[in-house]
């Protein structure tokens, strides 16, 4: 908020002093002995747009899911704004999660529920749990949900069933749901991989706009380098669970590219 007040567009203030997110020696070994993350450490600065790249199976999804502990890390620490997420108990974890919005490749909307209910679900970490069980939300939250739907251009779809929307529209509902959390950080796991290129840009622009005007830090895993160049402030790259690269998008030269994607890879983007 502060950043946008002082610097309307396109300048961005990223504060390097206290990172909003710090990942320390994160390792994840799945039950089937696959080492999906191997001693990964990096910081994310407040207000940054960080892209996560890597081949399929390199551990991008695992990394993002370890941050809000949808996947339980095997070892290492995740610090959100200085508080330890990995050591949090149930209640603390829920408090941490409500500050971390998440956007998914397959949108993960509840199909048979209305768009409005899907968006309101973003408030579940805040509202009184007992009232929420009988589908009662505070008036403010309902008003807020309409505002967010308006923001992603779906004001007229509030009462539609979620599965009646197109893919691009569903992803925008997903973004509105994440915004309802008043997040400090949004984790976006290949948010555009199931969409065509035109829609992909529209979704990326929404994330970009949220990043700039609301100062929300975005961690976004991406497949295409051109999207990385266009939207990301910084890139980290994974290969077989190891951190191979951490720097500016422009720094990915052919050498680095081969490190990240392997010797045979052809550069297209």
């Amino acid at each position: 908020m502060l950043a946008s007040a002082f610097y309307p567009t396109p300048l961005k203030l990223t504060i390097a002093v206290a990172p909003i997110l710090r990942v320390e020696h994160l390792t994840k070994v799945y039950d089937n002995r696959v080492r999906a993350l191997d001693d990964v450490s990096f910081d994310v600065n407040r207000g940054e747009f960080l892209a996560v790249i890597g081949l399929s199976g390199s551990g991008k999804s695992t990394l993002l899911r370890c941050i809000n502990r949808l996947v339980e890390p095997t070892s290492g620490r995740v610090l959100l704004d200085g508080t330890d997420v990995t050591g949090a108990n149930d209640a603390e974890l829920r408090r941490a999660r409500r500050r971390i919005g998440m956007v998914f490749q397959h949108f993960n909307l509840v199909h048979r529920s209305s768009v409005l209910t899907n968006v309101l679900a973003g408030r579940l970490g805040y509202v009184n749990p007992i009232w929420s069980l009988i589908d009662r939300f505070p008036k403010d939250d309902i008003a807020k949900a309409h505002v967010q739907l308006e923001r992603v251009g779906l004001a007229d779809k509030a009462d539609d069933r979620a599965d009646d929307l197109s893919g691009g529209q569903q992803q925008r509902v997903g973004i509105a749901r994440a915004l309802m959390q008043d997040p400090d950080v949004i984790l976006a796991d290949e948010p555009v991989a199931s969409l065509d290129p035109v829609l992909a840009h529209s979704i990326m622009r929404h994330l970009d706009e949220i990043n700039r005007t609301d100062g929300v830090t975005v961690l976004c895993s991406l497949h295409f380098l051109d999207l990385v160049h266009e939207y990301a402030d910084r890139v980290i790259a994974l290969n077989e669970g190891k951190l191979m690269f951490d720097g500016l998008p422009a720094e990915i030269d052919d050498e680095k590219f081969k490190d990240i994607y392997g010797k045979e890879a052809q550069r297209v983007g």
């Binding site: 998440m102 998914f104 909307l109 509840v110 579940l124 970490g125």
Partner: peptide
């Protein structure tokens, strides 16, 4: 997917059952 998404908002298990 929806279960993950609801849990990621900070919902508890009961809320997850009701909403997802």
């Amino acid at each position: 997917g929806p279960l993950e998404a609801i849990l990621a908002t900070g919902a508890n298990r009961l809320q997850m059952i009701v909403y997802a």
